[in-house]
Design a protein around this nucleic acid. Structure first.
Length: 554
RNA sequence: UGGGGUAUCGCCAAGCGGUAAGGCAAUGGACUCUGACUCCAUCAUUCGAAGGUUCGAAUCCUUCUACCCUAGCCA
């Protein structure tokens, strides 16, 4: 109970940002009545990544906060880059994150309306058909410091423009032959206002509208119309569109829209050790550097999901990073904190020895075995206990032994006594080495009086370590994922060649039939999750969650 | 070099004229059947810099500096 109250209080505190301040003012001024309507408008040209998650959370939770609505809209105005595979994955990812859209829409279904609007602009003498080539248009645009030059086609008559534009629609011209341009100001210091192109010709099949259209609207023209049609009040996008806002407003003003939506920009997410560029991620997929868009090393929602991230953890992360207009680079440690935070209370714990060292309990009877009870969760008693075999020969983590202990090392070393989790106090008596001098086995003794649960309190030990029973242990494969990207010696971010390692580990038998979706936290080594893509493998493969918080002080 | 933005602790980030929230990270300590978790403590006399206004400024004014975006028939 107290926990719940605490959680709510935290959410209360962190759930305000500058966008909310803007909305509060709009509500106060009744700019849009009491309406708050947002939208998440991805272009279906790739998979969603953690950066999109920030935008998704922002849009959906903002709507929730004000009892408003939020649409999922595919901004599919450029058929050359888009694909239905992407719309499916995007839908799945948004749902998985736990959000429900008011409507699922496609910008392409507004093409008729957008065409009508373009005709209206032409009739108002605010748009014209231009025959300049791409190269010529570029030259006429001017530079950052020099004004542009007007197109020779700028002063065509309304009638001629109407006819030409109609012909463009009919597919009478080749790609690039003509464009429709907004007639604004070639001398504007804002290059976006120098008669921007609003329609281009493209004889290409669209994933949604097929071959109905041979002209497609440009983002700057289409987006405000999409927002306006849907009754969006606050159109939230990223910082690089700030310079486009005058054009966004121009389109809606020219089209004489009542209660036009307003564009608000925020800084996109950057994460340390993470590449967020869709283009780059696509290249990794295409050249086979990763298994696919859902490779667990990818920062995609699908990759994070496969890696073991929960939607709760991702949403918590998005809440914690906040929203502002300052370019920032968020430490990935925060994301890792969020998954640990979420998993620590819901994941069950299991003992797994990743790098085994054999231990023989010399005073434990041969051919004898016993069962000990170990709790499944440290945090949640309701998760119960399980029986684990304990016998004469066991494996412990090599790290848990040090022949010559450093200060403050209180695990196994010759002569030291430690607790074996859930079992007995064990004292290391002897070290067995091979010819090369490598430690290959520890000879230990146990104290029968110290069994867990016996109530023994004769003495205490400083260390507790995990173990697996040699006879009953199962071998599992651990796939350990490091950061996909690392910095090289020059400070350049490059692909990490060691981003994925596969190795065998010994696990207690309860992991043998672990099913997809079951979450496990392995003792001391961090948090792991069953790989949902490998449900029927004989050997279960586990993905290592990022954010291993090794407590070892070396 | 034009235009548009942003500058508050190592990383995010509140603050909106009344005397610097919070989280992550870090550090010390307590606790512990793992050193995890939890807990407790420490962590910006100072808000990019310099001036100015004011009883009072991170918040207002001036000047300067740094960084980001911007010259696709991409979004």
């Amino acid at each position: 109970m107290a926990d719940i109250e605490k959680t709510e209080a935290v959410n209360e505190q962190t759930s305000s940002n500058f966008i909310h301040n803007i909305i509060d003012k709009d509500l106060e001024n009744q700019t849009y009545g009491n309406r708050v309507y947002t939208r998440f408008p991805p272009e279906p040209n790739g998979y969603l990544h953690i950066g999109h998650a920030k935008s998704i959370c922002l849009n959906f939770t903002t709507a929730q906060k004000y009892n408003g609505k939020c649409n999922l809209r595919f901004d599919d105005t450029n058929p050359v880059k888009e694909d239905t595979e992407y719309v499916e994955s995007i839908e799945a990812d948004v749902k998985w994150l736990g959000f429900q859209w008011e409507k699922l829409l496609f910008a392409s279904s507004y093409f008729d309306k957008m065409y009508e609007c373009a005709v209206m602009l032409i009739k108002k003498n605010s748009a014209y058909v231009c025959d300049l080539s791409a190269e010529e248009i570029k030259r006429h645009r001017g530079t950052l410091t020099e004004p542009g030059k007007e197109s020779p086609y700028r002063n065509r008559s309304v009638e001629e423009n109407l006819e030409l534009f109609e012909n463009m629609r009919k597919g009478l011209y080749k790609d690039g032959e003509k464009v429709l341009r907004a007639k604004i100001d070639m001398a504007s210091p804002n290059i976006n206002m120098r008669d921007p192109i609003i329609y281009r010709i493209a004889h290409i099949e669209h994933h949604n509208t097929g071959d109905k259209w041979s002209i497609y609207p440009m983002y700057d023209y289409a987006h405000p119309i999409e927002d306006a049609i849907e009754g969006i009040t606050h159109s939230i996008c990223t910082l690089e569109f700030e310079d486009h806002r005058p054009l966004y407003d121009w389109v809606l003003r020219e089209l004489e829209w009542d209660e036009p939506p307003q564009q608000i920009e925020f800084a996109r997410l950057n994460l340390t050790n993470t590449v967020m560029s869709k283009r780059y991620l696509k290249a990794l997929v295409d050249d086979g550097s990763v298994e696919g868009w859902d490779d667990p090393r990818m920062p995609t929602i699908a990759g994070l999901r496969r890696r073991g991230y929960t939607p709760e953890a991702i949403r918590d992360f998005c809440e914690r990073i906040g929203v502002s207009k300052a370019n920032s680079l968020v430490d990935i440690a925060l994301l890792e904190h969020c998954i640990r935070e979420d998993l620590k209370s819901r994941a069950e714990t299991r003992m797994v020895v990743m790098n085994p060292l054999k231990v023989v309990i010399t005073n434990y009877p041969e051919n004898s075995t016993e069962e000990v009870d170990i709790e499944n969760s440290k945090e949640d008693e309701a998760k119960g206990t399980r029986k684990v075999q304990f016998s004469r020969e066991l494996y412990v983590e090599r790290d848990d032994f040090m022949e010559i202990p450093e200060k403050k090392y209180f695990r196994l070393f010759p002569g030291n006594e430690v607790r074996f989790k859930g079992a007995y106090f064990i004292t290391c008596q002897d070290v067995v080495k091979d010819e090369a001098g490598n430690v290959i086995e520890l000879r230990c003794t146990y104290d029968p009086e110290t069994r867990s649960g016996s109530g023994f309190d004769g003495r205490k030990v400083k260390g507790t370590i995990h173990w697996v029973d040699a006879k009953t242990a199962v071998k599992i494969k651990i796939r350990s994922y490091g950061y996909l990207m690392i910095e090289d010696e020059n400070g350049e971010t490059v692909l990490n060649p060691d981003s994925m390692k596969v190795f065998e580990a010994y696990a207690e038998p309860s992991l043998k039939d672990a099913d997809a979706g079951e979450r496990y936290q392995f003792f001391r080594h961090g948090y792991y999750i069953a790989d949902e893509h490998l449900t029927n493998e004989t050997e279960k493969v586990f993905n290592q969650i990022v954010g291993l918080k090794s407590s070892w002080k070396k």
